[in-house]
Write a protein that binds this DNA or RNA. Structure first.
Lengths: 216, 216
DNA sequence: GATTTTGGCTACTCGTGCGTAACCCTACGC
DNA sequence: GCGTAGGGTTACGCACGAGTAGCCAAAATC
């Protein structure tokens, strides 16, 4: 019925690896704008300049696609940070470098961050995935604090450290959200601010200063 | 076809106000467990012990229902906090009381918090709603810092304060998540930890101490 | 130059779940 | 004692979007 146009030379046969990246780019973009559920596979395929079945053929179902996005972006981020923080530097220097790398990354991948990390927090199937990454971050930060403390001859129960680390990571993520929402803001400056909050507080804690609740 | 049982006395005619609360309770519960999209109106209605059309009649569409949940829980939380923090106390005392009230609330409404605030972060239609609440919190915290600073004769640009406040609020939310995930954890203790991170850091800032990036 | 592999498409099926039409019955006001 | 408003129900329409069947063509490969 359809007068099949005999393949108008849209000749765009590309190798799988390339197409997969295009699809992931499109997926990140669409997921970030619409949210996981509101995003449609059709729109993603469309945005990638390809048809839906190809997406299924290469990256699998919608959930698998989202996880693939999460992994790619997460790995990129981890690498950016790991590459910046040499483990033999003093704690504040390491923290500073890590933060700078982190905010630099978020600044450069604003919607990648916004899309995935913001999305993944809510949706059940992915919350675990994300939580695992966050855990690794918390671990690293807690390890750093612990290291600094021991070097100072002090020791603090693990749970305590973990909670503090959790708070710091949370604050950092929060500022990342802020950064993602303020396109004109400077990542470097944001990192400095975070450092102010985190380090001045952490320094006190490392020194052994502790705040105590007033007798109620 | 159905042999209609002539109204077995399930007699459960309740006034609108009551049913609405039951529905909201059920909605909060289901939304928090399943997430906004995965939650079905049927399940909510079921859980509230009522039929679906009643939910539509009283609370409107799914989105409207969710917003209603957000509002109820948000208002409750705000009241809990506002009731605790008298405005004429010193900054640290106010902060402490606010945090204690906050974590107390989250501890007592774990799934209310988890469900709504965690959900609302991701979903486009509600992100705004949530952002507005967060803004009010940030405002309050920033105002507090500003107040303390002025009393000390110092002054700091508004944006700077806002970002610091944002980080503190973020850290607090993060610990709230942690608390919601750890049923055995003590809200009071969590509040103390947060106070340690926030106040020891903030105190330094208030004193005028500032961290500066090393010359790269 | 034939064959197989790989990249690609159009056009469907089918489940799921929101929202509603149409109807029922009890309690209260008068 | 009777009408009516408000609490309640079942059973459906319908749209939307994930995932698929089936087919085509251009490169590799032999």
């Amino acid at each position: 019925m359809l007068a099949r146009v005999p393949s108008l030379p849209t000749f765009k046969r590309l190798p799988r690896a390339v197409r997969e990246q295009q699809m992931l780019d499109a997926a990140v973009k669409v997921f970030s704008r619409r949210g996981f559920h509101a995003a449609s596979m059709d729109e993603i395929a469309d945005d990638a300049g390809i048809s839906k079945p190809m997406v299924y053929a290469y990256l699998g179902t919608k959930e698998e696609l989202f996880v693939a996005c999460l992994h790619r972006e997460g790995t990129r981020m981890m690498q950016a940070i790991a590459g910046a923080a040499a483990p033999d530097l003093p704690a504040d220097e390491r923290l500073w470098r890590g933060l700078r790398a982190f905010f630099g990354f978020v600044g450069a991948h604003r919607d990648g961050w916004a899309v995935l990390y913001r999305q993944a927090r809510g949706e059940q199937p992915f919350a675990g995935e994300l939580a695992a990454m966050r855990s690794r971050m918390v671990e690293v930060v807690a390890g750093m604090l612990d290291h600094a403390l021991r070097a100072d001859g002090r020791e603090v129960p693990e749970t305590e450290l973990e909670v503090v680390a959790y708070a710091l990571v949370g604050a950092t993520e929060s500022l990342a959200d802020w950064l993602a929402d303020h396109p004109e803001a400077d990542p470097e400056k944001t990192a400095t601010r975070m450092m102010n909050v985190a380090w001045l507080g952490a320094a006190q804690l490392l020194r052994g200063t502790t705040w105590r609740p007033p007798s109620t």
